[in-house]
Simulated scan of single mutants.
Amino acid sequence: MKYPISFRLLPAAVSALALLSACATGGPSSASARPVLYPNATLNRVGDAQGQAEVNACMSRASAAGLSPSQSGNEVGRRAGEGAAVGGVASAVGALITGRGGEGVLRAGAAGAAVGGSAGAVSGAFHNDKPNSTYRSFVQRCLSERGFEVIGWN
């Protein structure tokens, strides 16, 4: 069976999306960032390996206290729903304006909802990795109480 070009390009589009998502999930403003320690007297005395062990311990302690490194509110699902609603309504209204009646409006609305939902899900995937400031404050205070200074997150 011969598929339209849009279906033949689907695997390439999915691969490109996965690659872009992987690139967008790092850096200091992502939830996967780790504290960067200033080389103060404590870090110089215990060394980098012990400093990273203390970072891990403080991160575990924050998780045990019920905190999560990411501030996820199911951004993917929320944006997919918004996109589907907006795309569906816009397409149905467009079909009514151009004079398509009955089934044409339903088809246009369903297609618009599918496109809008997909676009919303992609948008949500790029906005779903927000750091939790309370988690970061907890980790920084824990490290501070152990004599370390956090100068940022990477």
Results as ranks from 00 to 15, higher is better:
Ser30Cys: 04
Arg78Val: 12
Leu19Phe: 14
Ala53Ile: 06
Pro69Lys: 03
Ala84Ser: 14
Gly81Cys: 14
Arg45Ala: 13
Ala22Val: 05
Lys2Asp: 08
Val105Met: 15
Arg61Leu: 15
Gly152Met: 10
Ser6Arg: 04
Ala90Pro: 09
Ala41Val: 05
Gly47Met: 00
His127Leu: 09
Ala22Ile: 10
Leu67Pro: 02
Tyr3His: 12
Phe126Trp: 06
Lys130Trp: 07
Arg141Gly: 05
Ala31Pro: 02
Ser6Pro: 01
Ala121Ile: 07
Gly112Gln: 02
Leu37Cys: 11
Ala119Gly: 07
Gly102Ala: 09
Gly51Leu: 05
Ala110Lys: 08
Gly26Cys: 07
Gly26Leu: 06
Thr42Leu: 07
Ala49Trp: 00
Ala57Asp: 08
Ser70His: 07
Met59Asn: 12
Glu82Met: 04
Gly81Gln: 09
Val115Glu: 06
Gly87Arg: 00
Ala53Asp: 12
Gly88His: 06
Ala24Asp: 02
Ala65Cys: 08
Asn154Cys: 09
Ala53Gln: 10
Ala84Tyr: 11
Arg136Pro: 03
Thr42Ser: 10
Ala13Pro: 04
Gly101Asn: 07
Gly109Trp: 12
Val36Ala: 13
Gly51His: 00
Ala62Phe: 09
Ile151Ala: 10
Ala113His: 01
Ala119Glu: 06
Gly117Tyr: 15
Ser118Gln: 13
Ala110Asp: 03
Cys58Phe: 00
Asn74Asp: 14
Phe148Pro: 02
Thr134Asn: 03
Gly77His: 00
Cys58Thr: 03
Ser144Gly: 11
Gly112Thr: 04
Gly26Phe: 00
Ser144Leu: 08
Pro4Gly: 15
Ile97Tyr: 03
Arg78Thr: 13
Arg45Asp: 10
Val139Tyr: 05
Arg136Val: 09
Ser30Asn: 14
Leu43Tyr: 10
Gly94Glu: 02
Val55Tyr: 01
Asn40Ser: 04
Lys130Gln: 07
Val139Asn: 01
Leu37Tyr: 00
Ala90Ile: 01
Asn154His: 12
Pro4His: 12
Val76Asp: 12
Phe7Thr: 08
Tyr135His: 06
Gln52Asn: 06
Phe138Cys: 08
Glu149Ile: 08
Ala84Phe: 07
Gly51Tyr: 01
Ser15Met: 06
Ala95Thr: 04
Tyr135Cys: 03
Thr25His: 09
Val105Asn: 14
Pro11Asn: 14
Ala92Asp: 01
Lys130Asp: 10
Ile151Ser: 15
Ala90Gly: 14
Ser21Thr: 15
Gly26Glu: 10
Gly26Arg: 03
Ala22Tyr: 07
Ser133Asp: 11
Ala18Cys: 11
Val115Gln: 04
Pro28Gln: 08
Ser30Phe: 00
Ser21Glu: 15
Ala125Asn: 13
Leu106Asn: 04
Pro28Lys: 13
Val86Gly: 05
Thr42Gly: 10
Ser60Trp: 02
Phe7Lys: 15
Gly94Asn: 08
Leu37Asp: 01
Pro131Ala: 00
Leu43Cys: 01
Gly27Cys: 02
Leu20Met: 11
Arg8Gln: 06
Asn74His: 11
Ala113Glu: 00
Ala114Trp: 02
Asn154Lys: 15
Arg141Leu: 06
Gly117Asn: 14
Gly94Ser: 05
Ser32Pro: 14
Ala92Gly: 05
Ala31Met: 03
Leu106Gln: 07
Ala92Ser: 00
Ala33Arg: 11
Gly116Lys: 04
Gly83Gln: 07
Ser123Lys: 12
Met59His: 08
Leu43Ser: 02
Val122Thr: 00
